[in-house]
Design a protein around this nucleic acid. Sequence first.
DNA 1: TCCGATATTAGGACTAGGTACTAAAAAACA
DNA 2: TGTTTTTTAGTACCTAGTCCTAATATCGGA
Lengths: 196, 196
Amino acid sequence: MRRSKKERQERLQKTIQENPFVTDEELAQEFSVSVQTIRLDRMELSIPELRERIKYVAEKNMQDEVRSLPIEEVIGDIIDIELDKSAISIFDVKKEHVFTRNGIARGHHLFAQANSLAVAVINDEMALTGKAEIRFTQPVKEGSRVVAKAKVIRSEKGRTIVDVSSSVGSDLVFRGEFSMFRAQSAEKGKKDETGN
Amino acid sequence: MRRSKKERQERLQKTIQENPFVTDEELAQEFSVSVQTIRLDRMELSIPELRERIKYVAEKNMQDEVRSLPIEEVIGDIIDIELDKSAISIFDVKKEHVFTRNGIARGHHLFAQANSLAVAVINDEMALTGKAEIRFTQPVKEGSRVVAKAKVIRSEKGRTIVDVSSSVGSDLVFRGEFSMFRAQSAEKGKKDETGN
DNA sequence: TCCGATATTAGGACTAGGTACTAAAAAACA
DNA sequence: TGTTTTTTAGTACCTAGTCCTAATATCGGA
């Protein structure tokens, strides 16, 4: 089923995007063309070779400042973090996050952003949410950029209180106080402040 | 600075763990031994070659990436509902819902199940979460089936209090009180819009 | 229908970063 | 000292490419 060059290249791009681990050989079979054609296509589309693609994906994964939560497991993008102190993440509200009927973001996405930021800010192997008191102060519409700011309020043996405020522009849309359990209560009394 | 084989291998292991992108060539220089020695060491320690290591890291990343997306898809199946009274949903905790590190369900999934059930139980065109007070009483492991039960506590004009309790077997794992805003225009008859 | 442009395929030489293997030299030890 | 372990060297081969040249196929227009 060979189609035009243009169509093949479009499909090629999509295929590789979905599965960066595919070889030229496999693509050639998939599109019933020669390996050389695939390579020409890749060049025209400036798609790097398999190993470079894999490396890129792997490198993205390694930029892991966050201890208690791999960065990809955070909802929203962390733009700043000071472990055990504060963190900021942004989350762009897209079509898939809103109620189709009114275009308002479903609450659990805002919660997820805030909650995962609360987990991320904790400088520990493990952190779990114990309690939370939250408030959705204003509806958030599709297309909005929600900025969540987490602040560690206090920390006692195995428990940390994190406050998260989320805003769109200057409007507060969400606030929550999270009581987080943490894995190793490294501190008994006064702990050494080395941080590492 | 060449030391014993044992020490070199220990340091080798650590070095590769910290930076999986290092080649045998570079390691050979670092430890002032030949490339072949590094290869023997890797074999003895069963450390795969650079490309395999990179691939592994990249694959882990891909899994996590698709993992943080499907939150908007299914947040439990509603198995019973009596509009404006009560509802029950079940949610099977799978690999994609847990922290890779410890296999415990991420809080926002339990919240999402509860929250969307709270939305669903309301017999109205539109329902938004205003406030919530929630408590994660026990960690939920991968493979668990969480049953959430929502109960409408009271309902005033434009405001409804819904209580949701989630359990695994006989153990309560989550409780939340949701204060929901509802649209005044009560258009009845349609019961779908589950909040997913 | 033929012509020229574009697209595709084939092949060779070379690359990185290896595996798998053999063989020899060096170091450690008893 | 002799033996065992460790290290090094070198060869052939692999994958998944790059870069380049050259031949063939296919398509659109006069």
